[in-house]
Computed example of a mutant assay.
Amino acid sequence: MREPAVYIMASKRNGTLYVGVTSNLPRRAHEHRTSALPGFTARYACKLLVFYEWYADMPTAIAREKQIKAGSRKAKLALIEAMNPDWDDLYDGFA
């Protein structure tokens, strides 16, 4: 079953942020955490899942990802703070 989600990974509280979209959040977050794939999150050690939103379909999730990416860093921090004020690693809820 596909469960589209938009998510934000962080290197640390108020650190480097990565915004992504996936159809399998637990698997994708695990890939980021283990640096299984080379790229931005591996280079900048974005291993903490600090924000996510579920969507009914992938086109809606992709549109939301683009909206978040186009927003300011301040807007991204506000999203994280609203859902996860302590910047807990939300991946633990999936493991």
Rank of each mutant, 00 (worst) to 15 (best):
D86H: 15
K69R: 14
G15S: 07
G20R: 10
L79P: 01
L49C: 10
D86M: 11
Q67L: 08
T60G: 09
N24I: 04
K12T: 13
G15N: 04
A42P: 04
P85H: 11
A82F: 03
E53D: 11
W87N: 00
L48H: 07
V19H: 02
A45T: 12
L48V: 12
N84M: 04
T34Y: 06
A63H: 04
V50A: 05
E65T: 06
Y55F: 15
A45W: 06
L90M: 10
A78M: 05
Y7M: 06
R2K: 09
P38L: 07
I68M: 04
T60E: 12
K69E: 06
A70D: 12
L77E: 08
H30P: 01
F40N: 13
R73Q: 02
D88W: 07
R13A: 14
E53H: 10
A56Y: 05
Q67Y: 08
K12A: 13
Q67V: 03
D89A: 10
W87T: 02
E31T: 11
A61K: 01
S23V: 13
G20V: 07
P4H: 10
K47Y: 10
A82V: 04
K12S: 12
Y18D: 03
D57R: 12
W54M: 14
I8D: 00
A95D: 12
R33Y: 02
S23A: 10
R28K: 13
G20S: 12
L25G: 06
S72V: 02
T16M: 06
L17T: 02
G15W: 03
K47G: 10
R64E: 14
R2N: 11
A63T: 10
A29P: 10
R13L: 12
L49N: 01
A29I: 14
P38Y: 03
E65N: 02
A82P: 06
Y55W: 14
Y7D: 03
D88Q: 14
K47N: 14
G39E: 15
L79E: 00
D86I: 03
A61S: 06
G20Q: 10
A10P: 02
E53Y: 00
Y52V: 07
E31M: 09
L25N: 05
Y7G: 06
L49F: 05
R64S: 09
V50W: 02
N84E: 06
S11R: 04
P26N: 08
R64P: 05
R27W: 03
T16V: 13
Y7R: 05
R13N: 10
K47S: 14
D86N: 12
H32R: 11
L90Q: 08
Y91R: 07
Y52W: 14
R2A: 12
N24H: 12
A63M: 05
H30K: 13
E81G: 00
T22S: 07
E53W: 01
A95W: 09
V6S: 03
V19I: 14
V19W: 03
A36S: 15
D89L: 08
Y18E: 11
T41S: 15
M58P: 01
A5P: 01
K12V: 08
G20P: 07
I80C: 07
K69C: 11
